[in-house]
């Protein structure tokens, strides 16, 4: 078990290294902070409310566009560069490979969010915001973003073409984001099911300071499903 964890950590560190050793991480961070900073300033100035609710929601929406770009190379690149052969012939299970990559992307996402901590700090300086909703709000954002990353990783495992992987994951994300609309028009049980599949639906309570167990479970199981599918996708390649 200890040995497995060490291997996953090595994979994660290598993958995270790609983000931070290339200009990619810095470009992403700069643009993400630029956009969220713009929304933060505009919203605070126009609404005069001392809260993070809408800005947290905005971060998730922006990340909807960022996640496919962050994840599209994860598997596709290994295949294109031939390094897949190194990983698949090392004593690694497909799941360890998948987990290492997923965790690297999550680490990047969490660090990106850590940089946005400057906004609640500004609120703290100039006002007296409620702390609990901000913390639970961030928890929701981390969970939702991690789900996007798991989905993107899965899309990346389907092809060796990064652009295709990116487009596929963006489309899937967008559909799951707005599937609630279809639920509303469908109504009934079908409508309820569709609404519950929506990524946006389960994000509503977190910024209110409420941690609903079913929301947490939704994101965790969505992550588990996509990681499982990615693992199967890798294993299937071996058998085709």
């Amino acid at each position: 078990m200890g040995r497995s964890l060490l291997k996953v950590r090595a994979l994660m560190r290598r993958e995270a290294g790609v983000y931070f050793l290339s200009p990619m991480a810095y470009v992403f961070a700069a643009l993400f902070l630029l956009l969220t900073g713009y929304f933060f300033s505009v919203m605070i100035m126009s609404s005069q409310y001392i809260e993070m609710r809408s800005i947290l929601h905005n971060m998730v929406v922006i990340f909807l566009f960022v996640a496919p770009v962050l994840t599209m190379r994860l598997m596709a690149e290994e295949r294109r560069m031939g390094t897949e052969e190194l990983l698949m012939t090392a004593p690694l299970t497909a799941f360890q490979i998948v987990l290492g990559k997923f965790l690297a992307a999550v680490v990047f996402w969490v660090l990106l969010l850590a940089a946005t901590a400057v906004y609640p700090i500004i609120l703290q300086v100039f006002g007296n915001p409620e702390v609990i909703p901000i913390l639970t709000g961030y928890l929701g954002v981390i969970l939702a973003g991690s789900t996007f990353l798991a989905l993107g990783l899965f899309a990346s495992s389907l092809t060796d073409n990064q652009v295709i992987a990116g487009v596929v994951s963006f489309t899937m994300l967008l559909i799951l984001w707005v599937i609630g609309l279809a639920g509303e028009s469908a109504g009934g049980v079908t409508g309820q099911v569709l609404k519950n599949l929506s990524f946006i639906e389960h994000l509503q309570d977190f910024p209110k300071g409420i941690i609903d167990f079913s929301d947490v479970l939704f994101y965790l199981s969505a992550i588990a499903v996509f990681l499982f599918l990615t693992t199967r996708s890798l294993e299937r390649r071996r058998w085709s």
Partner: peptide, 12 residues
């Protein structure tokens, strides 16, 4: 195992 093309990560 040394594959046909050395499986290197160029950024490392």
């Amino acid at each position: 195992y040394l594959p046909e093309n050395p499986p290197i990560y160029p950024e490392m």
